[in-house]
Write a protein that binds this DNA or RNA. Structure first.
Length: 216
DNA sequence: TGCCAGGCCGGGT
DNA sequence: ACCCGGCATGGC
């Protein structure tokens, strides 16, 4: 799949570096990954600010806070009852399995780490991989709705194919490189928001407009 | 004003 | 193994 490198080059020269992930610490990034599930990042920003304002953006604070209080604080992110539970589940795992230490997580092997994250209620493949890549610096490609939309619109793979199939494409076609994966995923979100989403089915100005699927 | 956003779960076929 | 309803706020 030479075309995946081609797409990356086009996106990067067109948009430039994206400076992801928005978040000051690995722990905040993990929290943000859960909060942003099917949710506009702007709402997540408000929520993060809210948590910070109440000094609730630390492992200890989140772990000890009541479910009701947490739900109240993360309200702007939407799905706040569900997400409060999901954050609590993650904290349970984070405290029990890693003693509240990101370093402990980093030391674990990537495959087993992914298993552990996926076993947490409320953490699916995208959230797990976002945490692995953006919080822990593991070379795992993140697939999201934008990635699927862009690839399927250009006839590279059908939108309905399972997550792992999309991910395999990237893992087999690109070097296992953290900064490359980091930047590439962010660029998918960028091009998706700008040119390739449900509101903008056509994209004349899109840098991928002239892609030929021949050099797959 | 309605539709959409950086998903995931649980229950039903 | 799929399919689908539910979850919810704020922006455009």
């Amino acid at each position: 799949m030479r075309i995946l490198s081609d797409i990356y080059r086009r996106l990067f020269s067109f948009f430039g570096p994206q400076h992801w992930w928005p978040g000051d610490t690995p722990f905040e990034i993990a929290v943000g990954a859960i909060l942003t599930q099917n949710t506009n990042w702007g709402n997540v920003e408000k929520t993060i600010q809210n948590l910070r304002k109440y000094q609730a953006l630390t492992p200890q604070a989140l772990h000890t806070m009541s479910l009701q209080k947490l739900a109240e604080l993360i309200r702007p992110a939407g799905y706040y009852n569900i997400k409060a539970n999901r954050l609590k589940s993650f904290m349970q795992c984070f405290m029990n399995d890693f003693h509240g230490s990101i370093e402990n997580m980093k030391h674990r092997e990537t495959a087993s780490l992914r298993e552990t994250l996926l076993s947490v209620n409320g953490i699916g493949p995208e959230t797990a991989d976002s945490i692995l890549l953006y919080a822990l610096g593991k070379p795992v490609f993140v697939i999201d709705a934008y990635t699927k939309r862009v690839l399927s619109r250009h006839g590279i793979i059908e939108y309905e194919r399972p997550y792992d199939e999309f991910q395999m494409l990237f893992h087999e076609s690109l070097k296992r490189n953290v900064s490359l994966y980091n930047e590439y995923h962010a660029l998918f979100v960028k091009v998706g928001k700008t040119y390739c989403n449900k509101r903008k089915p056509r994209c004349e100005a899109c840098p991928l407009e002239t892609l030929s699927v021949k050099n797959k």
